[in-house]
């Protein structure tokens, strides 16, 4: 068995420049890098897990503040962004599919579409952050939850609850900010991938990079799928 393996190994090393020296076969190489990507995503889950844990605790401690703060966020933008991001996951999946088929132009197109949708998401996020700034809902500097609620015809909340909403917004910015940071990094990698794909760097037998990036992009999408209800939909049901 080892003899045949050694021969195949040498054959590969002579003929396939994309097979790295530490691997015996192309399958092993692809398998290892995908496995590595999954392990990396587990670290990402633990990273966001810390924030989700903090959210869980404070939501239980300060439920009225969380309800008040959550209902003050514009649900419209969050909902649009959710749709945008789900669509970007679709275009990403199409991109991986095109790579598997060896359709270079389609791959570039779908990756480009993913980049556009990702940028739309970040743009909308920017609008939302700006609204928070004008409403004085950014913890730290001049935070004042009741700042313009009276003008907008919304009920003022008691002072202690208003203070506690600061915790909600701290988590809101930490969670969506870390998510946006992952999107920005993803967008940067996408630019690189598009450029490389255009030059034909991802043939059907060697597109693990695209596939792994797809896993990352879907992961970032799923994080948002959790963030949206947790941040935007606290006690939104009409029964309340």
């Amino acid at each position: 068995m080892s003899d045949s393996q050694t021969t195949t190994l040498q054959a590969h090393h002579h003929h396939d420049p994309s097979l790295l020296v530490q691997f015996d076969t192309a399958y092993q190489q692809k398998d290892a890098s995908q496995f590595g990507m999954w392990v990396f995503l587990i670290t990402e889950i633990m990273f966001f897990g810390g924030l989700f844990g903090a959210y869980l605790i404070y939501r239980n401690l300060y439920n009225p503040a969380f309800v008040a703060a959550s209902t003050s966020i514009a649900i419209k933008w969050g909902a649009i962004n959710t749709a945008v991001l789900i669509c970007s996951s679709l275009t990403m999946a199409m991109g991986v599919h095109s790579a598997a088929l060896g359709a270079r132009k389609l791959l570039v197109f779908w990756l480009g579409a993913t980049l556009v949708l990702g940028s739309v998401f970040l743009g909308i996020k920017g609008i939302e952050y700006y609204d928070k700034y004008t409403e004085h809902h950014i913890p730290g500097a001049n935070f004042d939850f009741n700042y313009d609620r009276a003008e907008k015809g919304e009920k003022l909340v008691p002072a202690d609850v208003a203070t506690q909403t600061s915790i909600f917004f701290a988590l809101y910015f930490a969670m969506t900010g870390m998510h946006a940071l992952h999107m920005i990094i993803g967008a940067g990698i996408l630019v690189f991938l598009i450029w490389r794909a255009y030059h034909g760097a991802y043939p059907p037998h060697h597109y693990t990079m695209v596939e792994n990036f797809g896993l990352y992009w879907h992961f970032v999408d799923i994080i948002w799928i959790f963030l949206f209800p947790l941040l935007y939909l606290v006690s939104r049901s009409p029964v309340h």
Partner: peptide, 9 residues
């Protein structure tokens, strides 16, 4: 931001 600050909850 207040997340570990008792004064802000």
């Amino acid at each position: 931001i207040g997340i570990f600050n008792p004064a802000l909850g």
